[in-house]
Amino acid sequence: MRSEDAEPGTIRPGGRTARVRSAVLQAAGDALAEHGFAQLDLADIARRAEVGKTTVYRRWGTVTSLVADLLVDMAEQSLPRTETGSLLGDLKANARLVQRTLADPRQGALFKAVIAAATCEAKTAEALHTFYDIRVKEWAPCVQQAIERGEVPEGTDVQEVIRAVSAPLYYRLLTTGDRLDEAAADQAAEAAAAAARAGAYLRG
């Protein structure tokens, strides 16, 4: 059997399966950003991706499974952390990455749609939690390094500091409609850094 005819999931990374997955996830992200979760349709996504409907149904089965895979891919493709040598510098880099993502017309709409879907779809909620868990763990070492440098107290909850950076930015995205710019990102980072230095995130 030629590799082109193999079942999805059986070809080494970089083969046809990887190309199909990439095309389908791109199409799913576009459709999600344009129409929201409720309007997602596997047949439409297959058409957008220019792959057979059978392939999409066999590989993912449901819209929620496809969105879950999209979130896994987004977490894997996100940029690695930036280490500047200071807590504030690192947190600003994190905040600006979040800000650029949420301010992007496609990405911002996509996150709004996924967050909305997560309120009523358990599998989507689980995938969203996994996405943020991966991203928080990616950046948490920046806070651990700040502890080791003596910038913040021993016992600081490193993951909670990272969550505190992005929380105000998501709040703006979802509730206020205010412009998400670098000033907002820097303000969020400065607030989180000041709170961490003051011991606000000590465990227990």
Rank of each mutant, 00 (worst) to 15 (best):
M1S: 15
R2S: 14
R2D: 12
R2V: 13
R2A: 15
S3R: 15
S3K: 12
D5F: 13
A6R: 15
P8N: 04
P8S: 04
P8D: 03
G15K: 03
G15S: 13
A18N: 03
R19N: 09
V20D: 12
S22M: 02
A23L: 13
V24F: 02
A27M: 06
G29S: 01
D30A: 09
A31P: 00
A31S: 10
H35G: 12
G36T: 02
G36F: 06
F37H: 12
A38T: 11
D41L: 00
D41V: 02
D44F: 01
A49D: 03
E50I: 08
G52S: 15
K53R: 15
K53Y: 10
T54I: 06
T54K: 14
T55G: 07
Y57Q: 14
Y57T: 09
T62W: 08
T64R: 15
L66F: 04
L66Q: 01
V67R: 08
D69M: 10
L71Y: 05
V72P: 00
V72Y: 05
D73V: 05
M74H: 07
E76L: 13
S78A: 13
R81E: 08
E83K: 09
E83Q: 12
E83G: 04
T84I: 09
G85W: 05
S86A: 11
S86V: 07
S86C: 08
L87Q: 04
L88M: 09
L88Y: 04
L88Q: 10
D90T: 08
A93T: 06
L97R: 14
Q99D: 00
A103G: 12
P105A: 04
Q107P: 02
A109T: 07
A109M: 06
A109S: 14
L110G: 00
L110H: 01
K112D: 03
A113K: 06
A117V: 09
A117H: 02
C120W: 01
E121L: 00
K123G: 07
A125S: 12
E126M: 07
L128G: 05
L128D: 03
H129Y: 07
T130Y: 07
Y132M: 11
Y132I: 02
Y132P: 03
D133N: 12
D133C: 06
I134Y: 10
I134G: 01
R135F: 04
R135M: 11
K137C: 08
E138F: 02
P141K: 03
P141W: 12
C142Q: 13
C142M: 14
C142G: 10
Q144M: 03
Q145L: 10
Q145F: 00
I147T: 13
R149A: 14
E151T: 09
V152E: 02
E154V: 09
G155P: 07
T156P: 04
E160M: 12
R163C: 07
R163D: 04
V165H: 03
V165M: 06
S166A: 14
A167C: 05
P168Q: 06
L169E: 08
L169V: 07
Y170C: 02
Y171N: 02
L173Q: 08
L174D: 05
L174V: 05
T175S: 12
T176V: 08
D178I: 00
D178Y: 08
R179Q: 11
E182Q: 11
A183M: 06
A183K: 14
A184C: 10
D186S: 11
Q187M: 03
A188H: 02
A189K: 01
A189P: 09
A191I: 02
A191M: 05
A193T: 13
A195H: 11
A195M: 13
R197H: 09
G199P: 12
R203P: 03
G204K: 15
